[in-house]
Amino acid sequence: MKYELKAAFDAIHAGEDLRENAKEFLHKKLYAKKRSLRRPALAMACLALLLLVCAGYFSYYTPVAAVSVDINPSLELDVNLYDRVIRITGYNEEGEGLAETLSVLHMNYSDAINAILESDPVVSYLQKDELLEVTVSGNDEKSEAISHCISSQTAVEAGNVHCCKSSEDAAKAHAAGFSLGKYRAFLELQKLDPSVEVESVRGLTMRQIRDRIAQAASSESESSQPSSLPEEEASAAPEDISSSAPDPSSSAEHCGNGQGNGMGNGQGNGQHGQGHGQGNGQGNGQGHHGQGGGYGGGEKCR
């Protein structure tokens, strides 16, 4: 009976269809390359996300404007499309030192300027009666908007905010190791006094450069018109500065040299639309410099 039992079990075989079905099932389940729609869709989604992240990164870290802050420390803030400061560069020893102490990265540019103005080294410079100038460079609209906002939202006097639309000047300035603001002041001086070399102004403060500009302008006007023009007029802002208002401090400060007090007035077209401004200056006790106000109205700050 044992053999019959064995024979009975022997008669049971797995049919070919059973084997083939099992093989096919395993092939499909484990070994066939799946061509589901999920993978390409997932890959596309990942790619889109990657592109989005890259685009965001590049748009954030691409500077569209530069704000140059000059006293003697020369700083330049690179501003992105979203009005955030993405880089701060010092253009001289003091500037580099100041750049290291400041933490203005990723701040709005006007907040950054205010933070710079409130920083201890800058406060001490301003207490020593140094001149602070801000020069904005970049494309037309952006640089105008930024200079307008800096004029209206920061403690920087409107007369000391300049707007430069020439990218050539910025490139030349950086090549010479200058911030744009200081380089433009040098160009002004060189225009009046061609003998001035780049190196001779490198160590000068903005106050000293402006004083030399004023001196050169007055000596030039004296030589061309010895019958004498009023000093205030002779020291009118040079042509290539497209400031949003005249710089009344200049007219006041050289009056102070001789007389101890001064009055200045100026008129300038605002750079944004129909705005106009008036500035007047009054000498202080030592007759050093006056204060001016007035800027063009037009665009709104963000």
């Binding site: 079990f9 049971i12 075989h13 797995a14 395993l26 092939h27 070994y31």
Partner: peptide, 17 residues
């Protein structure tokens, strides 16, 4: 897959029983 096919061929009858 080769190993699995070999196992199916060798042991299909046993599993079926």
């Amino acid at each position: 897959e080769l190993e699995v096919c070999r196992a199916i061929d060798s042991y299909a009858d046993t599993v079926r029983r």
